[in-house]
Design a protein around this nucleic acid. Sequence first.
DNA 1: CATGATTACGACAACGTTGTCTATGGGTGT
DNA 2: ACACCCATAGACAACGTTGTCGTAATCATG
Lengths: 348, 348
Amino acid sequence: MQRDPPTGKITIIDIARAAGVSIKTVSRVINQEEGVGDETRARVLEIVATMGYRPNVSARSLSSRRSYLIGVIFMRVGAYHYVGEVQVGAMRACRRAGYHLVVEQVLPPEAVGGVQGFAEGLRDARFDGVVLTPPTCDDPEVLAAVETAGLPYVRIAPHREFERSPYVFMDDRKAAREQTLRLWNMGHRRIAFIDGPADHGSAARRRQGYIEALRDRGVEPRPEWIAKGEFLSLSGFDATERLLALPERPTAIFAANDEMAVGALAAAAKHGLSVPRDLSVVGFDDTPTAEAAWPRLTTVHQPTAEMAEAAVEMLIDGFGDERFRARVAARQLDYSLVQRDSAAPPLA
Amino acid sequence: MQRDPPTGKITIIDIARAAGVSIKTVSRVINQEEGVGDETRARVLEIVATMGYRPNVSARSLSSRRSYLIGVIFMRVGAYHYVGEVQVGAMRACRRAGYHLVVEQVLPPEAVGGVQGFAEGLRDARFDGVVLTPPTCDDPEVLAAVETAGLPYVRIAPHREFERSPYVFMDDRKAAREQTLRLWNMGHRRIAFIDGPADHGSAARRRQGYIEALRDRGVEPRPEWIAKGEFLSLSGFDATERLLALPERPTAIFAANDEMAVGALAAAAKHGLSVPRDLSVVGFDDTPTAEAAWPRLTTVHQPTAEMAEAAVEMLIDGFGDERFRARVAARQLDYSLVQRDSAAPPLA
DNA sequence: CATGATTACGACAACGTTGTCTATGGGTGT
DNA sequence: ACACCCATAGACAACGTTGTCGTAATCATG
């Protein structure tokens, strides 16, 4: 077909001509395949650099069946700081390896066409692989859709079926344990915990860590010190009200996430308690809220971006591998305790 | 080349065979071109549906030079709620039109390879168009890179050069004016404003609206009632301390964004002032922080997702158009006032 | 020095669409 | 009955890469 006049775009053919080799040889150099002499390789590379050649992704993927696209799947994209963090990390890894990042959303169950529309999107986007974030990483329908599409995937912080695919995670339990001990070591003996939603795996693990820490110190945590919460600030507020109404009032409150910790701060203010003088409050996650709160929250930093980065790395590394899914690998990342202004030793 | 045994994937050829037409006709149906009889079209469509055929994006884009990818460009992806909101809206529009969304980041000036790496990414991602978010939408280097790449683009809330491209925006000035009047109508007469960074266009427009509102009511705003801020909660805290130290203490504080409003809440608490009884505080943006704060912030909802959605729509609609950039269109979206718990009439 | 193995490279088809051009058939006007 | 036109549809090349396979040149081996 006679198409446009020369577009000006340089193709592999131009490079081949300039280097005096065949296009296949250029292709080999570009793709770092072997079977090219050192001298030839150097010459081609130089010409590629000076002419500023960049391979055409579409042609490439049509021929090789690789799209150089990685999908990140979220359930709710809006309003969560988490989404941005994940993308930062994922993009870092993508850029390093010459991939691009496509954001895909599974509409939540209540929306029309939820997983259905998602599955279609999966099919025509032709990802080389996808990263599943919570809670999509534990959704049976989503997993089924991804597996049906035959896509390699890595999950971030899954709660179940750890044998099902590679994943990355951090040790919530251990972090919560340390967070609790930090309060203990400041001198707190009446430490309460604000729990997360029942079905939320990381909430359960954090509670577990809290309980373990107290038991480690020879204290059996009292049931009334564990207040039910929903990961929302209002629920943190309510839980704190209940805790402060106890006959033996806690001197420190450990909320399972930062948002509830902010609610706890508000409740403390309402009761005329100054934080951290009269009451210590600590959170978990290290979201921007923790930094914006007043006083700034002492919390646990969850390496969200790094987890996403690791996930994408695992994915890309796995591409060479046949039977990717079979090789169930897991990579653990380190949390860190963040010391700010909302926790201090109790008044003597 | 002899490649894999039949992959099972259905191609346009299968559809053509099943429908008893040529592949070109199927192509025409898929792309909604004319020149196909109603009956033929219906038959093809049905077969496409029953066989679940989806065109191969790579082949398509190789041949047609359209990638069906839209890029959203951010400067900082992490930590900002804004990013997620933009993506929600952009994704909605993309999905409707069969496009996918690729996230791209211009590394901030301090990072190595900032715009450089971005420009390269632009070139090989082959977007059909991009959406620029603030502050990238006013960065001369970014604009140059996009224009050099010959990409159509739409800007979200630009501050300058409105003639340079299509854009979407909301009327910050008017919204701030209404927000101020809301306080006025509650009975407040000493209304202070916490300003944003000097170079931030929307901050300037919001300040303008505040000033206008007061003048409308015959009050010349006093310079000491406009406190410098940096859009961060700490700066809101500091600004509020200065405002509360004034001989004639304001009864209401309007912060140019929610984060600073949260800082203001903290300062109020420190001074033993109960919000909204002793002091009203209102914000701007309606970020999740506003809902999480205590008391929940009365603020102005910025339709971030909708703006992004509109931007993508404009982009896609413009594709048919030659001379896209020449047709500088602008689309305005409506804000809305959000009534929560942080503002009330002043004590008599 | 003949033989087989290895290395470096090229020719050519294939990936699955869309663009251009051409062919066919039925209706219309005269 | 004739030319003409429009609506419909197909043939075929082209998009820019990579996969497969072949081949010439080089090397080690007995």
